[in-house]
Design a protein around this nucleic acid. Structure first.
Length: 567
DNA sequence: AAACGCTCGTTGACCTAT
DNA sequence: TATAGGTCAACGAGCGTT
């Protein structure tokens, strides 16, 4: 049976303006504009019957239809509509039905999770134990969506695979000391990431990311189905799940919080060392990695911590750390009332000292030391690889950020500030390309068009989650960012953006979780015009599962899982 | 070749959720 | 209230058997 993909059908049809919602097509109370049957309302942008509504939803979700045998010119009415799915789809498209009105998998998933959470009140022990062997599956009596069910089954199947280094199509390097990113082939270079029509990737990304002089920031109003909205809804859900987490709720018997002075690159990197050490310990390596982290703490004490102290805090230290729970927002001086305009007019030297040495701010991150150990070997490998990559690039990235901050403190015009910001974002794009090439396993399996589409579509999302967390590593970082953004965005947009950043900071997300989340974003299969969707879906399920396991291990009492309690 | 039964995918009316 | 997605009985195509 020959089939034709939905994308092919849509490409043949007249292109629709994807940047704005046209007026709904058809007359309310009339007939279906697709087949003439009795309409039931506006569905996906046109007045249509239940049949065409359901057909369009199923077909777009499925991604293909039976090919027409009569030259794609079948007449379409309420009697012949069942005869030729391809022509029916073309009629739906011609009538103005919009595929971007369908909820994406991520949105469905968010909806499912929200429903599940509201229907099942939080129990005392929703998760029996942070064990990766707990199957991720939904009870049949709670399943409300076949897609989600299939997705979870897929996740479950992947998690049950026996081969530790083979996850479907995704190969996972071993946890040996070799640096996996050195052997990863280079599927696409930054210079290659241009459209065939000559559009520059950076220009395109920046045009959607920035709104120079625009009264209506494109970022906030865009509806081009790049997946950002989906990720925002997902993150909103994630934020909703974790916002009530109190650090004191966590088990104090274990070193719960990695109190990271936000002053030196080395100390900011300590959570990476945590993971490394934990993995070393898990492998039974006798030699503990000695962390010679030279502290430049506020009292001037130089501290040396070895892996033992970093992986198993003493009870006394834990108590001290858990009781010292100043709000992150206050620490970062998010509120302008804590930071006068005069204070920000610091000299370059003063800025540097704030960034690297004498700042009082300390960031508390959730970093449950046993979390990584509870992961399955393949997920440990993923975490290890991410950590290794970040460890390798940390110093360079930190210097890049600090250079940006230093320059932002200089007394320059807004135009110059804009130019510098654009230049900086160019580097950020390159950095992201390097990340996906090195860390995201399935990336090399995608065709060049898909690689480009994936990077383009996920760049904004990644920036949205990374910026606030990265800035949390810098004293006064949020405030410096405000100065930069004021030069490139409108006031309304910046207010919304800062509100989003504030919410992200409330998550107290650690770098490993952040990088895992970035992997999830990058491989999100909801991107438009992706040919290798299957590849992305497999990888997506894998990263989701890994992220879920990690969060379950770190926050075992919080119902942020997509699985059910152990039977 | 025709009739029959089985499986599985599709349809659409109706439902719930937001 | 409008419009998403979900559900499930009914339907029909395809296939093997008689």
């Amino acid at each position: 049976m020959s089939q034709v993909s939905v994308l092919d059908v849509f490409e043949d049809m007249p292109a629709q303006d994807s940047t704005s919602f046209p007026d709904p097509v058809g007359a309310e109370g009339g007939d279906c504009v697709v087949c003439g049957d009795k309409g039931s309302g506006f569905h996906y942008g046109v007045y249509s019957c239940e049949g065409c509504k359901g057909f369009f939803r199923r077909t777009v979700t499925k991604g293909y239809v039976k090919a027409c045998k009569s030259g794609s010119k079948c007449n379409m009415d309420m009697y012949t509509r069942r005869k030729c799915p391809e022509c029916r789809l073309r009629s739906c498209r011609a009538a103005g039905m919009r595929s971007d009105c369908l909820l994406t998998q991520a949105q469905c998933r968010s909806k499912f999770l929200y429903r599940k959470k509201t229907e099942a009140p939080k129990s005392d022990h929703p998760i029996s134990s942070p064990n990766q062997e707990v199957p991720v599956q939904s009870p049949s009596n709670q399943s409300t969506g076949t897609d989600v069910q299939q997705q979870q089954n897929q996740v479950s199947n992947i998690s049950n695979q026996s081969e530790p280094c083979s996850l479907g199509q995704v190969s996972v390097p071993s946890t040996s000391s070799t640096q996996p990113f050195e052997t990863v082939p280079e599927p696409v270079s930054f210079s290659q990431l241009n459209d065939s029509n000559g559009t520059n990737l950076l220009d395109e990304i920046m045009s959607s990311f920035m709104d120079f002089g625009s009264e209506n920031p494109a970022v906030l109003t865009r509806n081009d189905s790049t997946g950002s909205d989906d990720m925002l809804s997902f993150l909103a859900l994630l934020a909703n799940d974790t916002q009530s987490i109190d650090e004191n709720d966590l088990d104090p018997s274990i070193g719960l919080f990695d109190e990271v002075p936000a002053t030196t690159p080395i100390q900011n990197n300590s959570s990476i060392e945590h993971a490394e050490n934990l993995l070393s310990l898990q492998r039974g390596e006798a030699n503990l990695v000695v962390q010679a982290n030279v502290s430049a703490s506020t009292n001037g004490q130089a501290s040396e911590e070895n892996s033992e102290s970093s992986t198993s805090d003493t009870p006394t230290e834990s108590v001290n750390q858990t009781t010292n729970t100043q709000g992150l927002k206050a620490t970062l001086q998010l509120s302008p009332k804590h930071q006068s305009i005069d204070e920000e007019q610091a000299t370059e030297e003063h800025t540097c000292s704030l960034l690297f040495g004498e700042g009082p701010g300390k960031i508390k991150r959730i970093a449950r030391p046993d979390a990584v150990q509870n992961l399955s070997p393949e997920y440990q490998a993923i975490v290890s690889e991410i950590s290794t990559f970040r460890k390798k690039t940390f110093a360079r990235d930190h210097k890049m950020m600090s250079d940006l901050f230093k320059r932002s403190s200089q007394d320059i015009s807004n135009k110059e500030r804009q130019a510098r910001f654009v230049a900086h974002m160019g580097v950020v794009v390159e950095k992201m390309v390097e990340f996906v090439k090195t860390v995201v396993h399935c990336f090399q399996d995608l065709c060049i068009e898909d690689q480009i589409a994936v990077v383009k579509a996920s760049f904004f999302d990644c920036c949205m989650i990374r910026v606030p967390v990265v800035l949390a590593n810098f004293n006064n970082g949020v405030h410096v960012l405000q100065r930069i953004l004021q030069a490139v965005h409108t006031e309304v947009f910046n207010a919304t953006l800062m509100k989003w950043y504030e919410g992200m900071l409330d998550l107290k997300i650690d770098m490993t979780t952040l990088d895992l989340l970035q992997c999830v974003i990058v491989v999100s299969p909801d991107r438009p015009n992706i040919k290798g969707r299957d590849i992305l879906e497999q990888s997506y399920a894998q990263y989701i599962e890994c992220l879920t396991c990690l969060l379950q291990s770190r926050l075992p009492r919080e119902p942020l899982d997509v699985s059910t309690p152990a039977q």
